[in-house]
Design a protein around this nucleic acid. Structure first.
Length: 583
RNA sequence: GCGCCCGUAGCUCAGCAGGAUAGAGCACCAGAUUCCUAAUCUGGGGGCCAUGGGUUCGAAUCCCGUCGGGCGCGCCA
């Protein structure tokens, strides 16, 4: 049995499929029906049963019968499954299944056996997926604008790994564009300052942030006044390299406060130096995907300095873009797109699939890069390498309801580490993960700081801590979690198990949809169900986890609590949030 | 003008690759701890799922139009 099969929901999807197969063999159903739309999931209303399938409804038409008639024969087939207590037809043709209590008790035991692996699956089949995220320009510390993509990308990468993919977490360092020259000049000012020169105000157009002060000091310590009066050409490259390295150290530290650690940092400058970009261009030219041409003036805005110049253009209009895109500038340097194209080609050679996490402000470039990657990776006439761009919408930063304008140029921004220091990693991560990534969100700094005690993350963590505390208390009284007498667990307890048992399918669905936020919502639901059950013990002492004078019942209940805690812990781990045993 | 994303309760958001009576948190109201920490629980009010069509057994969900909001539309990155 593989990991992907070891849970009840996956099992019953197969039971239903087998039942349909039996009907085909018997001639009741025509062969070759597409069962892709058949579902097997818990009904929204638990009173309808444990599992529900729409098989009769989606197959009735192609089978030339009506839903309820098909449901009747399918029910007869499903009732042969020993774990099925009842199979009922409901509404327009749903089939609702009730399973034996023992099958749920078995699932509970399975959670204990699987432990940290409960929910893990082999769905990905070991395929290598490269997830590129953050990739902020190395010109300053991480700010809140980067935060969402960082958290979503990291959680998605972990989710894919947990679902049976081999994941490479990658950061693309844009250390080759004009912005790093600006950085080098900004650092040179700080270098002069460190040497005691009067530099006055930081000139317009350079980065004014204080974070460059120590970089200037380090350069002064290393080089003395060697470059103080030297022409820019003498120091630009050296300063650029040193400054980028310093910025990347800072960024790595910032990411570490969120628990984010990339496997691979790829340098744009190194990529260009290696000749990979030229190779990509040659290949594209040979395949008539790059040609020399002249662009039309941009629409929708007027540019005084617009000039028509011949440039090497990528035929992105063939792939739905509204304009062909230059891969080189008139000065011969690569455009961002030109280098990016080669970069993706290189990534594709080392992975079975690519996922990029981008900010929504880059949405306009998705078509061209997807087109380029599709063209490059199907070079040998094969199928193109799967490549998805996941857009993470903007976070509107507010302070007491007032928008905070952020600009690195002006030095006015809310840094990531400020926020993490203030509210903590878990709150930041959970907040970013409790909404779907393709909707905009507001992040009111003051509000989040103030309301951090009410953050849903504590609700979930509290459930876990509560469980740990009870297990400790049980141990103090000599009660140990035990799976010996799970038959003592009744309807209310099994309702908890049924919810927890959905974790594996939630993980798979979240991985397929690339939506880690589903895990966060599931955990909230599970914590809520747990807190509810826990409070039953207020009025009904016999429902407590620790029942005085009853080690057998206490053992079974504590076992239940332990497994619920395990599932919460597994889910939190996926989100990169701590599952503390004390709050 | 064009492209992408969004529009669900007073507010912030879910709604599981179309499914049964649209949910949660916050806020508001009313309750529950001699008993495992109340960082919890129970109950209540509150929604023409922006809007108009279409697809089908069935639509908040898919398609088209309209309105409203965001982002983008340079040889920038």
């Amino acid at each position: 049995m593989t990991l992907g099969q070891m849970n009840l929901h996956a099992d019953f999807a197969r039971v239903i499929d087998a039942a349909l197969g039996a009907l085909e063999t018997a001639g009741t159903l025509p062969g070759g029906l597409n069962r892709g739309a058949v579902t097997c999931e818990p009904p929204r209303d638990p009173s309808h049963g444990d599992l529900s399938t729409n098989a009769a409804m989606v197959l009735a038409k192609p089978a030339g019968t009506n839903p309820r008639a098909l449901a009747a024969v399918l029910v007869a087939e499903l009732e042969k499954e020993p774990r099925v207590v009842s199979a009922e037809i409901a509404g327009p043709g749903f089939i609702n299944l009730r399973l034996t209590d023992d099958s749920w008790r078995g699932e509970l035991a399975l959670i204990a056996t699987a432990g940290a692996d409960y929910g893990r699956s082999d769905m990905g089949g070991g395929k290598v997926v490269n997830v590129e995220y953050v990739s902020a320009n190395p010109t300053g510390p991480m700010h809140m604008g980067h935060c969402r993509g960082a958290v979503v990308g990291d959680a998605l990468a972990d989710l894919l790994a947990y679902s049976g993919h081999k994941v490479i977490k990658e950061y693309y360092v844009n250390d080759a564009g004009a912005q790093v020259d600006v950085l080098a000049r900004s650092v040179h000012i700080r270098y002069l300052e460190a040497l005691g020169r009067d530099v006055g105000a930081i000139p317009e157009g350079l980065y004014p942030g204080d974070y460059l002060v120590p970089v200037g000091q380090a350069l002064a310590a290393e080089f003395g006044d060697k470059y103080a009066d030297a022409p820019e050409a003498d120091w630009l490259i050296t300063f650029r390299t040193k400054a980028v390295a310093a910025m990347m150290d800072m960024i790595r530290d910032d990411l570490a406060t969120l628990g984010i650690r990339h496997d691979l940092f790829s340098s744009e400058a190194q990529l260009q130096a290696s000749g990979k970009v030229d190779e990509a261009e040659s290949w594209l030219r040979a395949h008539d995907l790059v040609y020399d041409g002249v662009l039309e003036a941009p629409k929708g805005k007027t540019l005084e300095d617009w000039e028509a110049v011949e440039l090497p253009l990528f035929r992105s209009t063939r792939f739905g873009d509204d304009q062909d895109r230059p891969i080189k500038k008139s000065n011969g340097a690569w455009t961002y797109f030109g280098a990016d194209l080669a970069y993706h080609f290189q990534k594709a050679q080392n992975a079975d699939a690519l996922v990029d996490i981008w900010g929504a402000d880059h949405a306009g470039t998705v078509k061209r890069i997807k087109a380029a990657v599709a063209a490059l990776t199907s070079a040998d006439g094969g199928t193109a390498k799967p490549f998805e761009v996941k857009l993470v919408q903007m976070v509107q930063l507010l302070r007491d309801g007032e928008p905070v304008k952020m600009s690195k140029r002006s030095g006015n921004f809310v840094t990531l580490s400020d926020v993490v220091d203030e509210v903590g990693k878990d709150v930041v991560r959970f907040t970013m993960l409790t909404r779907k990534p393709d909707a905009q969100m507001d992040f009111d700094f003051a509000k989040v700081v103030e309301a951090s005690k009410d953050n849903p993350v504590f609700y979930v963590q509290y459930a876990h801590a509560r469980i740990c505390r009870n297990i400790r208390k049980g141990a103090d009284e000599g009660f140990v979690p035990s799976s010996e007498n799970l038959s003592l667990l009744g309807e209310e307890e099994l309702a908890l198990v049924k919810l927890a048992a959905q974790f594996p399918r939630m993980v798979e669905a979240a991985a397929v949809a690339r939506e880690p936020h589903r895990i966060a919502f599931f955990l909230h639901d599970l914590a809520s169900a747990f807190h509810s059950f826990y409070n039953l013990g207020n009025d009904r002492p016999e429902k407590r986890f620790i029942v005085a004078q009853d080690p057998v019942m206490s053992g079974a209940r504590l076992f239940l609590a332990q497994q619920i805690g395990q599932v919460i812990k597994n889910g939190l781990a996926l989100l990169g949030v701590e599952a503390a045993s004390e709050l």
